[in-house]
């Protein structure tokens, strides 16, 4: 479980996050939504330690991650899997080496065990016989799947996904969404997804946080989201005609 307590973050004089508190439970898909510039990416980067917070606490199962130094953070970081918007795969390596990297760095597995784990992770994301492919030869959807395979290679307790559907066609988006949800349920991972794709939110959003002007403006499930009487939430959720016709 991840708990945020009064998290604040500023860049120079510009306050991006204002006293954000929230709880992300394991086994459900937690989503952070909000318009551009609302602070979603900053919050995610603070949670994974890429940005230092100015005030507040980020607790990973009771341990305040934000107060730890680089070395103290390593045990928690080993339990974190991250799927980046661009997948952030190492383009100097092939698919197999990308998934092998965290295993080589931190596990005591034998060569055979590592290979088994790689093949298991690839199979789990519905990719097979792609081990030797170069990253440049993969499609956008395949890159995301390899990104997920790399993220789950070390059997993480926490999974973060930054805009997992960006740049993907609707069909592939649904596949990626369902994959993230299945993995979350199967391994009881604490999953936090940063998204502004409303289809995705309605499809898999068990617990949603709506950020507005750097604040936790609204919190609830996807069914509560469409019934919300909050003006900012409604403006965001029903911005498209499709959402209006489907849910209003």
């Amino acid at each position: 479980m991840i708990e945020l307590k009064n998290v604040s973050k500023s860049f120079d004089s510009n306050q991006i996050l204002k006293n954000i508190s929230a709880t992300f439970k394991p086994g459900i898909t937690n989503m952070i939504i909000g318009g551009s510039g609302s602070g979603k990416t900053t919050l995610l980067k603070c949670m994974i330690g890429l940005h230092e917070i100015d005030a507040g606490e980020i607790n990973y199962d009771g341990v305040d991650f934000s107060k730890l130094d680089f070395k103290e953070k390593i045990p928690i970081r080993k339990e974190i899997g991250m799927l980046f918007q661009s997948a952030a795969l190492f383009d100097s390596m092939n698919v197999e080496d990308n998934i092998l990297f965290p295993l080589n760095m931190f596990s005591d597995f034998t060569k055979e065990e590592k290979l088994d784990r790689i093949n298991f992770c690839l199979k789990r994301v519905n990719l097979e016989n792609v081990n030797q492919l170069k990253i440049a030869d993969l499609s956008g959807g395949m890159k995301k799947r390899v990104g997920i395979a790399r993220a789950i290679a070390m059997q993480p307790k926490y999974l973060f996904c930054d805009e997992p559907n960006s740049g993907l066609d609707p069909k592939t988006s649904i596949i990626i969404d369902n994959l993230i949800r299945e993995i979350t349920l199967e391994y009881q991972i604490t999953t936090v997804i940063n998204s502004h794709d409303m289809n995705s939110v309605m499809e898999i959003g068990d617990h949603i946080i709506f950020l507005h002007q750097g604040q936790n403006w609204w919190e609830g499930s996807n069914t509560e989201l469409i019934k919300s009487d909050n003006q900012e939430v409604n403006e965001f959720v029903f911005a498209s005609k499709l959402m209006k016709s489907k849910y209003q």
Binding site: M82, A88, L89, F90, D91, F101, F106, F160
Partner: peptide, 14 residues
């Protein structure tokens, strides 16, 4: 700029 260094840091790699 392609977040590969961020990916390393999140894994706990120096």
């Amino acid at each position: 700029v392609t977040e590969q260094i961020d990916a390393l840091e999140i894994m706990g790699v120096n």
